[in-house]
Each structure stands twice: as structure tokens, then as C-alpha cells.
Design a protein around this nucleic acid. Structure first.
Lengths: 160, 160
DNA sequence: TATTGTTATACTCTATAACTATA
DNA sequence: TATAGTTATAGAGTATAACAATA
């Protein structure tokens, strides 16, 4: 990635001006850092962020149709096809025929998928703790709360 | 984008489980929202987030070499070439020959680039206010401070 | 030999549109 | 006619590697 050395948030001697005042720019930097940590820590399972989201949604909402999954994830149907293809190739997910609608498939986890998702979820939680490691417990909670507020999720569903 | 309708953070009747507890997942959702708002509001200037970053860095650090720009932005040199090509095509940036090193170019803003960057920056600041609109002034400041802490930028350079 | 900018190439991600088989 | 899944295709974005000119 990026030829060699890791990304330096601030190169000495460089003026960043307004960039240093923008929440959006800071969000993007945090997201890049988080993505890299996610990819390296999940490499053994061949899991990417969208794959993890899809597995979690399928595990908790068995019998979902591919079109429904696409809507939940906010992606195009063609993207959901490739996502499910990948998860099926990895042996995590299965397409089950739907007797009541021969066009559609019911998405379900395999045994291996269910087992591995447990380990993957633990690894993702460790990753999440890592990317927020510079915050103390109270700051971490505040950060999460503010993010939820920004996505308009206040009080809709309370997480654990 | 995404076939039709806008992304729904929570589809009714769907269980999100651990996803709702992860800071990383929330960051990603906020970043997607912010990116879409950025692209639509900057469309008139043909400005993307990396192009804005590059223009700002070049304007504040005139005479930068392409390789230095790449390092500051954390991208490969080939990426910087395409970025500068785009900004040059838009008439915002110019490659100036460097007498002391015939291999390199000195990157500088054009008059148009300087003028437009003023308007673009105002639009970006309006965009930034928009994506944090659901936070009050104190929360906005807290959010920004926590993001800076996460990227290890505490106290290195204080923004305006 | 190393570095600067460039080009060629490839890979990922995601989108739209057209197709098929059902409904 | 509309919908579910699929396929084809294309466009961004970004990466590596090789290259010519220069140091």
C-alpha cells in the first residue's frame, strides 16, 4: 500500500490550514486507519467490513432474500450477489431455495459460518477497542453516542 | 447511486446486533453520508475530497514537488500524477519547471485556482457544518477533539 | 546508483442496464 | 407487467512495476 512507509497524519514543516479544522477530514483519516487495521486483523478469515456486516445481518435475520440484504446494506443488488458469492465460496453462507417463490433464495448461515462468526466477531470487537484505544471509557462512550446522533440513530435501537 | 432510494441506517424489523455497538461501523456510516454530501455540494467545481486536500496543501505550501505532495497526502506517486493532472486540467494548479532540478516540478496555484479555492473552502466549511448539524457547538468541539486524539494529533498543531 | 515524474497495468469496489425465470 | 437473481460492462480509485531523464 502507498509505495512504502505508513501514512503520517502531519508531515513536519507542512501547513494544513483549514484541513485541521474540518470534522469530515478527521473522520476520513480515522476511517482510513480503522480500515487498514480491520483488513490486517481479519485477513486470516478473508473478511472485509462489508462481508462482516453481511454475515452479521444474515446470522441475526435468517431467511433474508438477497434483495432485502442489499437494501439493509445500502448496496445494489449486483453488489449483494458478489458479496453472497464470496461468503458462499468461503463456506460461511448458503442460498436455500424458497418453495413459496421459485425466483428467490433464502440466505442462511452454514455451521462453519456460525462458528467462525463467533471468532470473527470477537476479533472485530478487539479491533474496535484498538481503534479507540487512545480514548478512555467515558470518551469512547461519548464518541459512539455522537456518531449515532450524526446518523440519526438516537434512541431507535439501543446497542448493548 | 445504489439503484434507487437513499440509505436507511436502520431498516425496520432488522436486527443489527453487534454492528450497533461498534465505533468503527458508526464511523463508516458517518463517512459515507459525509462523502455523498461533499460530492453533491462540490459538483459544480468538479472537486472531490482528495482534490480539495491537494489544492489546500499546494496553496499553503507553494513550490512543493509532486513526490512531496504524494507523501503528505499518503498516496502513491502515480496517484499524485493523476491528481495534479486533474487539477491542471481544471485550471487550478500549474507545474513550474525547477531550475535547480530538471527532473522535478514545482507545484503552484493559478490565479483562478486561488480565487476558486476561496469559494470552495467556504463551501467545504458549510458542508462540514452540515454533516455535524445534529450536534450542538459543544458536542461538535468534543467530536473534533476525540477524532484528533484518535489520529494521534493532540497538541501537535492547533487548528483555528 | 538513486530519484523524479510518468506510463502501463491490474485489482477492487461499486454502479447501471440488460437478461432469465418466475410471479 | 413487475420482481428476484444474475451477468455484462464500465467507471472511479488506488496500487505496483518498469521506464526515461536527470542527479
Amino acid at each position: 500500500m502507498r509505495e512504502e512507509e505508513p501514512f503520517l497524519a502531519h508531515v513536519p514543516g507542512i501547513q494544513y490550514g483549514v484541513l485541521d479544522t474540518l470534522a469530515g477530514y478527521a473522520v476520513r483519516r480515522v476511517q482510513i486507519q480503522a480500515y487498514e487495521d480491520f483488513m490486517t486483523s481479519m485477513a486470516a478469515w478473508h473478511i472485509t467490513p462489508p462481508r462482516f456486516s453481511a454475515m452479521t445481518i444474515i446470522a441475526l435475520n435468517p431467511g433474508l432474500k438477497l434483495t432485502q440484504l442489499a437494501k439493509v446494506l445500502g448496496i445494489a443488488r449486483s453488489g449483494a450477489v458478489m458479496l453472497v458469492d464470496a461468503l458462499e465460496d468461503l463456506g460461511y453462507v448458503r442460498r436455500e431455495p424458497m418453495p413459496e417463490d421459485k425466483r428467490a433464495f433464502s440466505l442462511v448461515m452454514t455451521d462453519k459460518g456460525r462458528t467462525d462468526l463467533g471468532n470473527i466477531t470477537a476479533a472485530v470487537q478487539a479491533h474496535d477497542a484498538r481503534i479507540t484505544a487512545s480514548l478512555n471509557a467515558r470518551e469512547r462512550d461519548t464518541f459512539w453516542r455522537l456518531l449515532r446522533k450524526m446518523t440519526g440513530m438516537t434512541g431507535i435501537t439501543e446497542g448493548a
